[in-house]
């Protein structure tokens, strides 16, 4: 691999101040897939902060992508607030028992100013380790579930979705409470050195309508993003699944970068690309199952489309890289995105 002019930190620094970069940043969401790089189980990755960080560092070394992505799954906040999770040997933690069967009463909502139960300490240790190890050259992203997704992990999911219709104010009370907890955790993440990425997969168009998104997800996403803007941070919001019903609304969250999944890139750029950098959106199934040549060809095409985004583009996968994705396919993705995303005019003075 030839030496590049900029490192990921420098490249990202230019992107977020609206300056051209030497090439588009490349960001396959190598999250728990990173466990494979060091031969760890996903359980080890998800339950030991130092292991998580080391796997991420090793994956970044191996594939040469532009971010460290500290993430296991969407239960981080919910577990800290009382939901129970199961930890399979080689899969991400799964919700075993939500804290509540139905929407809680206001009196059930205790103080959440210092969420530190569950895997919070583990996660913060991963952030600190990665920050110490590599933050001078690579941005360290710390994924935090957004309030809507967390709320759906605290209450029986069907009951929660039903509650949006039958007891909307009670649902909002829960969402307010979760938002306070999320903000408190976000502050700890910032202090540990992680750039927060908010993930709200359960608020996608695959789960709720655009109207429900506007009422029950957007204000709370906006709340946590507003908190981060107080620190002048550039925030990625990731909404996976069907982005069609919500894409027009996503810029209203205040996110600086929108990470999208199942939606045409042209459509996403037209709807949001004037206000937000677009991050996306290579199909993960294709990354997993196609040949390296097919991956490279399709990724190059995606980047050529994405570079039309006025606010900037990050070549990413639409969601997390599946565990069984061959190394060769990730390599092909990274190489093709780099090649198609190269800005040959960079550094040439007029």
């Amino acid at each position: 691999m030839t030496r590049e002019l900029l490192n990921p930190r420098e490249r990202f620094g230019l992107l977020v101040i609206d300056e051209p970069q030497d090439r588009v940043p490349v960001y396959p969401l190598v999250t728990s897939r990173a466990a494979r790089v060091l031969g760890k189980t996903v359980r080890e990755y998800c339950t030991d902060g130092i292991t998580m960080a080391r796997c991420q560092l090793a994956a970044q070394d191996r594939f040469g992508h532009d971010f460290i992505s500290l993430f296991s799954e969407v239960g981080l906040v919910a577990e800290a607030l009382g939901s129970a999770y199961d930890y399979p040997e080689d899969d991400v933690p799964m919700l075993l028992r939500p804290r509540w069967r139905g929407l809680p009463e206001e009196s059930d909502l205790s103080d959440v100013s210092d969420p530190s139960d569950g895997r919070v300490r583990m996660f913060l240790s991963a952030v600190e380790y990665a920050w110490e190890a590599r933050s001078d050259t690579v941005p360290v992203l710390a994924f935090i579930p957004a309030p809507f997704t967390t709320a759906q992990q605290l209450v029986d999911p069907e009951e929660f979705l039903l509650g949006l219709l039958t007891a909307p104010e009670q649902a909002k009370g829960l969402l307010d409470w979760v938002t306070r907890a999320t903000v408190a955790l976000t502050r700890k993440v910032i202090e540990a050195g992680g750039l927060p990425v908010f993930v709200d997969p359960l608020a996608s168009g695959s789960v709720i309508s655009g109207e429900q998104f506007r009422e029950f997800a957007l204000p709370y996403e906006a709340g946590v993003i507003r908190f981060c803007h107080r620190y002048d941070l550039d925030i990625i919001l990731h909404v996976c699944g069907d982005g069609g019903p919500v894409i027009d609304l996503l810029p209203e969250t205040g996110a600086d970068l929108l990470s999208i999944d199942l939606i045409g890139l042209d459509r996403a750029i037209a709807a949001a690309g004037g206000r937000c950098r677009v991050v996306g959106n290579f199909p993960t199934t294709q990354l997993w199952l196609a040949s390296p040549a097919e991956v490279g060809s399709a990724a190059g095409e995606m980047v050529r489309q994405g570079r039309a985004c006025p606010k900037g583009f990050v070549a990413a996968t639409g969601c997390e890289v599946p565990h069984d994705t061959p190394d060769e396919n990730i390599d092909a993705f990274v190489a093709a995105c780099r090649e198609a995303g190269t800005n040959r005019a960079f550094g040439q003075q007029s």
Binding site: R9, W131, E132, D136, T137, P139, I190, G194, Y231, D232
Partner: peptide, 17 residues
């Protein structure tokens, strides 16, 4: 973008370790 009164944490996140 022209506001600037942010804490050391902000700049540490962007590489000023």
């Amino acid at each position: 973008w022209s506001y600037y009164m942010f804490p050391p944490q902000t700049f540490a996140l962007y590489g000023a370790k």
